[in-house]
């Protein structure tokens, strides 16, 4: 055995499963937990179980939530005519931080990727279509600018176009506060392609 305690070994293995955590860091985290007061550790353990027990998926937008439907879907302050389609709950958090978007969301739970065995049935596409016809008149496709995000954007556009809503996608271009000279040429050439008439 590597360590003098089986409990420690177990914890190291659990930490090591986390994304971005190797065995060395896992050991450091485990020893850190060992040094903390018991009540702190219990609090953390409970927080871990709570996210699992209390969080479900919103039956409307498929985002993570404690109440179903979620607070965004039920909020009276949101514009109910605009919907932003994203891949993951983390994308909703990122967009909410902007305070710019006041509409509703739909979380697909990923993007099309045959190599990973992900097709439309593995994404929340049926739930998306179930929201039509309704109040929604504009759909913003805010998927990642990857090969998979792009294919998903094309797929959804083909599905949603016949439903009559206005469909747009996020602009691709230069990061705000970035210098043109430091932008990579692929981004720059696509930003040039998607230029805006003034």
């Amino acid at each position: 055995m590597l360590y003098t305690s089986e409990a420690l070994q177990q914890l190291v293995e659990e930490f090591a499963r986390l994304p971005g955590i190797g065995r060395k860091t896992a050991l450091r985290l485990s020893l850190f937990m060992l040094k903390r007061p018991r009540e702190d550790v219990v609090k953390m353990a409970r927080a871990l179980v709570d996210v699992k027990d209390r969080i479900t998926n919103c039956s409307v937008c498929c985002n993570i939530t404690e109440a179903d439907p979620c607070t965004i879907c039920t909020s009276a302050k949101r514009e109910r005519t605009t919907m932003c389609v994203v891949e993951e709950p983390s994308d909703v958090i990122a967009l909410e931080k902007t305070n710019e978007f006041r509409g509703l969301y739909h979380v697909l739970g990923g993007a099309l990727s045959p190599l990973d065995g992900i097709g439309p049935d593995d994404l929340k596409v049926r739930e998306l279509l179930a929201r039509f016809p309704g109040d929604i008149t504009e759909v913003i496709l805010a998927l990642n600018p990857t090969v998979e995000g792009e294919a998903t954007t094309i797929y959804l556009t083909r599905l949603l176009k016949p439903l009559g809503a206005k469909i747009s996608r996020l602009a691709r271009g230069i990061p705000v506060g970035g210098n043109l000279e430091f932008a990579d040429e692929a981004t720059l050439s696509r930003a040039l392609e998607g230029r805006i008439t003034l």
């Binding site: 045959p114 998979e148 040429e185 692929a186």
Partner: peptide
């Protein structure tokens, strides 16, 4: 000679693999 060609060619290869898989 073209950074955008390089980006396109890498994306093309990925799309090709995805489409071939289907």
């Amino acid at each position: 000679t073209s950074r955008s060609y390089l980006a396109d060619v890498m994306e093309y290869r990925r799309v090709l693999r995805q489409r071939n898989k289907l």
